[in-house]
């Protein structure tokens, strides 16, 4: 069963491939969507009354925030360290953990689906995907990586059963990723895709590498040891992949 939900300023496509009765699949999809809307309400910087907005305005202390907010901010701090400062929830000034929240919320949604009995599904939140088990045809999910210049073409096709695929690029919303060290828009890389076990981490790594520019290629190579493979395209059209990238046969 497939479903498309508008939430968090983007579109989330959900597909459950489980052999379960239709009403049950519908219930599972509904509960996943309810969770994503709950996250949006609590974390959106566009919503005046969200926990994050109130924290930004110092109306609440971090100590009074929910466990989820504290967990997200802790993980943002960890990732700031792990990416040498290139993943920065304060890149634009005020606190904006959106770069972590989207991946994390989908990661949690997928874990909850699994706990509730859906072991074969994928969720695609605006181009960042978490998947489990086998696709409807019984094989691994086939994930296309969008070509960075041709919107209707794919640069790579991956085969993934368990894990996450996240892409950051400058082609969709222009130069919206900043190099926190220079304050200038990120240049050098056009598109970075990271494949690994956790969507929030994969997403943060892709964003950090994009912010680094071409030195990000060497930085991505080191993430392989942590279980994160990558594919990147430079602004002048050179393509790079890590040796273990799960390219579909």
């Amino acid at each position: 069963m497939r479903h498309v939900e508008q939430v968090m300023g983007t579109v989330v496509s959900i597909e459950l491939a489980d052999d379960l009765p239709e009403p049950r699949l519908r219930e599972l999809i509904d509960s996943a969507c309810a969770w994503l809307h709950e996250v949006d309400a609590r974390f959106s910087t566009y919503k005046e009354d969200s926990e994050v907005s109130r924290l930004q305005r110092r109306e609440v202390d971090l100590a009074d925030c929910s466990d989820d907010v504290r967990l997200v901010l802790e993980r943002c701090a960890d990732l700031w360290r792990e990416t040498d400062g290139y993943f920065d929830a304060y890149a634009k000034g005020p606190l904006d953990p959106s770069g972590y929240v989207k991946g994390w919320s989908v990661e949690v949604a997928s874990a909850r689906l699994a706990a509730a009995g859906s072991t074969r599904h994928h969720l695609n939140a605006g181009g960042d995907i978490r998947m489990r088990g086998a696709a409807p045809d019984g094989k691994p999910w086939r994930v296309g990586i969008r070509h960075p210049w041709q919107a209707d073409k794919l640069a790579w096709v991956l085969a993934v059963s368990e894990g996450a695929v996240a892409t950051s690029g400058t082609y969709e919303r222009g130069a919206h990723v900043w190099n926190p060290r220079t304050g200038a828009p990120a240049t050098g890389l056009r598109s970075v895709t990271v494949v690994g076990p956790d969507l929030a981490v994969a997403d943060a790594y892709a964003t950090a590498a994009l912010a680094m520019g071409e030195p990000g290629l060497a930085w991505l190579a080191k993430r392989v040891a942590e279980g994160y493979e990558s594919a990147a395209v430079t602004e002048d059209g050179r393509a790079f992949t890590s040796p273990g990238l799960p390219v579909a046969p």
Partner: peptide
């Protein structure tokens, strides 16, 4: 393909 990964769209 089953899904497409790309830079976040609005």
């Amino acid at each position: 393909v089953d899904a497409v990964s790309g830079a976040t769209f609005t």
